[in-house]
């Protein structure tokens, strides 16, 4: 009987994914993507992965939502394409001859086919007992937490999590490279509506408290640093949208510190553990619980600051460009 839910969810998710790729207009694509995120979160719940469902819910409906709306506005303001220029650019490219496209297409198809074959083989070879679940469960008492997902993310495979923090920081650096730091300091549009200001004021502490709850709950159930970080990042985005850009209001060193503290604490901890004779990120079991909680908090602060900064950067960059378009018109 419950297979009906799964069938509808599967059909809905695949249909929405295809529509996201092939819908004729950009607005349709963006808003269908939100529905896709919802279907995906429900599918993760049905698969029993509540951690992933929370992350999907937070990222798809919160962070990506405002980023996409921002990008959509940018596209809607862009001047119509000038076809004459396009012709010139097009004819100067080497792809004028349709025959020259044959080889890249063949290579792409072969590569994709090979990748699919390898993926199929990997899926085929998964052992019967569900992979490494038993091994993770057996070592759970030594990890300092009670939830296997948190134990894997922050203890057994802490190296991966550390590098993920670095990846998020690299994403922020990429927006710096595109936008430049001088725009980063300009104040945004101030919220002139009293209801808007009040709802931001109401939801800021709610987001903070629920993020802190998820962070602490990650010890014993689904939740953790990444979920909390997106909620805390949403605070920064809300304040930015309400005319209080966090990074323009705190001193520069504090902003830089909050961006790097997650990566840095991991690094220093690993260094001390190595100096003490252990391997990298091999926590002493007595202090593992406390250490994981500290790492999670600092990582969440770092990721939240990075998400806020990415949004602030892109938002201000768009404003700058649209002003230029306006003045040239």
């Amino acid at each position: 009987m419950s297979i009906m839910i799964d069938i509808i969810l599967a059909v809905l998710a695949i249909y929405l994914a295809l529509q996201c790729l092939f819908a004729p207009r950009l607005t349709q694509t963006v808003f269908l993507f939100f529905a896709f995120g919802l279907a995906l979160a429900l599918a993760w719940v049905r698969l029993g992965a509540v951690d992933v469902a929370i992350t999907e819910a937070a990222i798809a409906s919160g962070f990506l939502g405002v980023l996409f709306l921002d990008a959509l506005r940018d596209f809607s303001l862009a001047p119509p394409l000038k076809w004459d220029n396009l012709e010139v650019v097009h004819s100067s490219l080497a792809t004028k001859n349709p025959k020259s496209l044959f080889l890249p297409r063949l290579a792409l198809m072969l590569g994709l086919g090979l990748f699919l074959l390898i993926a199929l083989e990997a899926v085929w070879k998964i052992p019967e007992g569900g992979g490494l679940t038993a091994a993770a469960e057996a070592l759970l008492p030594e990890s300092g937490v009670e939830h296997p997902v948190t134990a894997v993310l922050l203890n057994f495979r802490a190296y991966d999590t550390w590098l993920e923090l670095g990846v998020i920081l690299l994403g922020l650096l990429a927006t710096f490279a595109v936008g430049g730091i001088k725009i980063y300091r300009k104040p945004p549009v101030v919220a002139d509506d009293i209801l808007l200001r009040q709802v931001i004021l109401f939801f800021t502490p709610v987001l903070f408290l629920f993020g802190a709850f998820l962070l602490y709950f990650g010890k014993s159930g689904p939740g953790g640093a990444f979920q909390a970080a997106v909620l805390w990042g949403a605070i920064g985005i809300l304040l930015h949208l309400g005319g209080r850009p966090v990074f323009s209001m705190i001193p520069r060193w504090l902003g830089q510190l909050s961006l790097t503290v997650g990566l840095g604490f991991f690094l220093i901890l690993g260094f001390f553990l190595l100096a003490g004779g252990a391997t990298l990120f091999e926590y002493p079991p007595a202090y593992a619980g406390v250490l994981i909680l500290i790492i999670e908090t600092l990582a969440a602060i770092s990721i939240a600051a990075a998400l806020t900064a990415i949004f602030a950067n892109l938002n201000q960059m768009n404003k700058e460009e649209s002003n230029q378009i306006e003045s040239t018109n």
Partner: peptide, 14 residues
């Protein structure tokens, strides 16, 4: 708690 974010995003960004 994140539902309001999209609306405020639309109103303020656009």
């Amino acid at each position: 708690v994140l539902a309001i974010l999209l609306v405020i995003g639309l109103v303020q960004v656009w």
